[in-house]
């Protein structure tokens, strides 16, 4: 496995990031939107870990950074889901298109 060059990881991360961004911007289901954001954050982790192992200037701080990213991403998912729960209790919907109370 160690023979895989750095660009492979970077392209994987880039593809994952783009899928996440696309999903976050186009999906109608709020849960899928939150999952897409997680995909984007995990793309960052792949980048960080790949750079810290195979990058031009490898260093352990990248892996530490990714630990922080994972933790914060978990917190963000928790907050996002909690807010979605509150919204669902009041509106009985998770469809992003129906969240239009604030357009006026």
């Amino acid at each position: 496995m160690s023979s895989l060059p750095l660009p492979v990881f970077l392209v994987l991360a880039l593809i994952l990031f783009c899928i996440g961004l696309f999903g976050a911007l186009t999906k109608r289901n709020a849960v899928i939107v939150l999952i897409s954001i997680e995909l984007m954050l995990n793309a960052v982790n792949i980048n960080l870990v790949a750079f810290s192992k195979y990058g031009p200037n490898p260093g352990i701080t990248g892996q530490i950074f990714s630990l922080f990213t994972i933790t914060v991403a978990a917190a963000e998912a928790a907050v996002g889901l909690a807010i979605l729960f509150a919204l669902y209790r009041n509106r009985r919907t998770v469809n992003v298109n129906e969240m239009d109370q604030l357009k006026r």
Partner: peptide, 21 residues
């Protein structure tokens, strides 16, 4: 969430090029 992910993506490249935080 989207903006955080975008910021971090940029930061990960900055880390990658320099190896420092």
């Amino acid at each position: 969430g989207i903006s955080t992910a975008i910021t971090l993506f940029g930061m990960s490249y900055i880390f990658g090029l320099t190896g420092e935080t």
